[in-house]
Design a protein around this nucleic acid. Sequence first.
DNA 1: ATTACTAGCATTCGAGTAC
DNA 2: TGTACTCGAATGCTAGTAA
Lengths: 226, 226
Amino acid sequence: MKPYLLQTVKTLAMLGAMRGRIDLSSKELAQQMNVSQQTASRYLLELDKIGVITRELGIKKQLIHITDTGIKLLEKEYSEYQQIFEVSNRIILKGRVVSGLGEGKYYTEQDGYKSQFKDKLGFIPYPGTLNIEVNPIERNKIRLLKTYNGIAIDGFKTESRTFGNVKCFQAMVNNIKGAVILPLRSHYSMILEFISPVHMREASRLKDGDEVEVIINIYNEDNHGD
Amino acid sequence: MKPYLLQTVKTLAMLGAMRGRIDLSSKELAQQMNVSQQTASRYLLELDKIGVITRELGIKKQLIHITDTGIKLLEKEYSEYQQIFEVSNRIILKGRVVSGLGEGKYYTEQDGYKSQFKDKLGFIPYPGTLNIEVNPIERNKIRLLKTYNGIAIDGFKTESRTFGNVKCFQAMVNNIKGAVILPLRSHYSMILEFISPVHMREASRLKDGDEVEVIINIYNEDNHGD
DNA sequence: ATTACTAGCATTCGAGTAC
DNA sequence: TGTACTCGAATGCTAGTAA
């Protein structure tokens, strides 16, 4: 979608073309958008061609109506602005399912962690984590996520070794509730580890390379750490 | 504002550049926007030039942050989408009662305004205005409000000075009918001034810091100004 | 009145490439 | 790696104008 066409549909919507047909000449649209009459005319032709609006040419102006395709376009744009301004208590990011080294299973089976997961998250995770390689462009969101306190899971010691502190955030993948786990001290990683009461790869039919959306709950904005 | 630049700022905002600096290369932005690296680089240069973003060039990527100017741009766009989807003949917003500088009393006592209030609003306001500091998250609604014509109150001159044009909207606070007043030419303000036939602080037992809801009547959608 | 074509100018694009 | 310049091609713009 060309940006100027999107702006045109938006302008039409603001003039009421989403709710019904509006009487509009290319000259009027041109004035509204600060372009020439010819350009406005071309915009309308292009939008018509790609099925975003319907037109009926009258003897004078034209009757313009935004189609469902056009409405979907606007809704998508609107929801993106909502994400920018309103949905600040959660972070949404996309990534791909990848295979880990089996470490996730080892960690989630430790009683020291398991009991805390049950107490603080309300579920005992299925052994193993779903590793999600976050889309490179969204790694800034991981950095942002790390500034929130989240749910603290304390480290502990066993006879053989030490397990470090981690923090969790309630999260959702493919409509299944769970949590993402972040090690407190770690190098910068683009892999998110997701745990849930069920076996994700089975319940959600996920395999390596599948793209998933992770919705992470960060509770509130005052929850900043560090 | 060129449409493609607006889209660029929106993309940056979705990547978190409104909340803080984000690490981003022109190549990554290019992928996100489906343009070439060169074009993305130019977009960033243009946005920097017009003061919409700030950049810090690092050894690798660049640190990008959206300025207040850029945020205002996005807010304007967002409020226009709200207008499209939230069809309503009124704007509801919340704020807190704050103290003014006594100016409200001075203005509401001017005969030049008083007579027009009586004619056009149907009441003579109690001397003084109830100043309401609008909840920051709802400041976009004020911008939206400003795009409506409202009820025009003409400016006038006295021997000593000039009083500017203002516009009003019928409004309600704590179930008491009155109007909000907006100066026609003014910098961006988060303070709404509410007038009514009665002394609001007394009739409604309001004091500084109290939260109030303001319901503003904008009549109809064709009532746009400018 | 309109819409919208054509022609030519202006802007924008991306490949190549310097740094 | 990066950023960002040059420059030819592609796209977009408007004036003139036909219908």
